[in-house]
């Protein structure tokens, strides 16, 4: 059990009403776990409770009830914090410092012994090598995102928690970001990725958890989530035709055998029978009832 980087059990987080403002339940009976070495996509519409859950995992918010364990330890403990890299949503840092200054101080805060050259190479890895001596206050949103990735990578973390990390990035930078995430994962890091960009999650994640109104609506391996349970695609070709010319037909599971038999009786060669995959967007919209949940 100690190998499980994140285990969330029946988490509930409510915000009390104050001074005429109504209270609300941001997360309700949420349970899931992130396994060692996987990339988990954490999805949900705006206000689904993704950031609240992440803040509970990081110990920034106290759960109203339920348990969160990181490597079987409680959130916020020193041993846990030292293993985590965190890329926040819309990050901001002490803007009077340069990235080099801030990275140097941040490594000292984490009690890491990193040389200036190592810091420069991390900044180069995230594409900030030309901005090393510019004050952070002059940075764009995307550059601050790169900066927070650099800070997260500094300690070679065992767990990377990322909250909308590519929100302010252009497509090229998003691709670079994705490559870094995959590199870190192949190094052995577990990735917990909250994102609105479904194509991104679809490209790199092993599993996904989808939230709506604070509750988990679906969870599973991406392959299982995207595969339709009752729709199959049959590839077939007529005898004597060229090998790259074939036809496809989609049928429901109940009629699969009957359709195959018919095609064979008609002299068609069956090339492949496979389940039909939906896009993650379709899965997401279906799980959240078109995003209305």
């Amino acid at each position: 059990m100690t190998d499980v980087p994140i285990k969330v059990d029946n988490l509930e987080k409510s915000f009390r009403k104050t001074l005429g403002l109504s209270g609300f339940k941001a997360v309700d009976s949420l349970s899931f776990q992130v396994n060692k070495g996987e990339i988990l996509g954490f999805l949900g519409p705006n206000g689904a409770g993704k950031t609240t859950t992440i803040k509970c995992i990081l110990g920034l918010l106290k759960p109203t009830s339920g348990n969160i364990l990181l490597w079987n330890d409680f959130p916020g403990s020193k041993t846990v914090r030292m293993k985590i890299g965190y890329v926040p949503e819309n990050p901001d840092y002490e803007d009077i410092f340069t990235p080099l200054e801030f990275m140097t101080m941040f490594s000292s805060l984490r009690e890491l012994d990193i040389s200036k050259d190592q810091i420069l190479s991390i900044l180069e890895r995230v594409g900030l090598e030309a901005w090393v001596k510019v004050r952070i206050r002059n940075f764009s949103k995307g550059m601050k995102q790169r900066m927070s990735l650099a800070l997260a990578l500094q300690s070679q973390p065992e767990l990377l928690i990322m909250d909308e990390p590519t929100g302010g990035l252009d497509p090229a930078a998003r691709k670079e970001f994705r490559d870094v995430i995959l590199e870190e994962n192949s190094r052995g890091a577990t990735i917990f990725l909250s994102s609105h960009l479904l194509s991104e999650v679809e490209t790199i994640c092993d599993r996904a958890v989808i939230l709506a109104k604070g509750k988990k609506v679906t969870e599973g391996n991406l392959d299982d989530l995207l595969r339709t349970e009752d729709l199959f695609s049959i590839s077939f070709m007529a005898p004597g035709t060229e090998s790259d010319v074939h036809e496809e037909k989609e049928v429901v599971a109940a009629e699969l055998q009957k359709t195959i038999d018919e095609l064979r009786q008609n002299g068609q060669n069956i090339l492949e029978v496979k389940p039909v995959y939906r896009s993650l967007e379709e899965v997401f919209l279906s799980a959240t009832r078109g995003g209305k949940l």
Partner: peptide, 10 residues
């Protein structure tokens, strides 16, 4: 929001 990354990790 400079507090969040500081308290979350180091």
């Amino acid at each position: 929001k400079t507090l969040m990354p500081l308290i979350a990790v180091p």
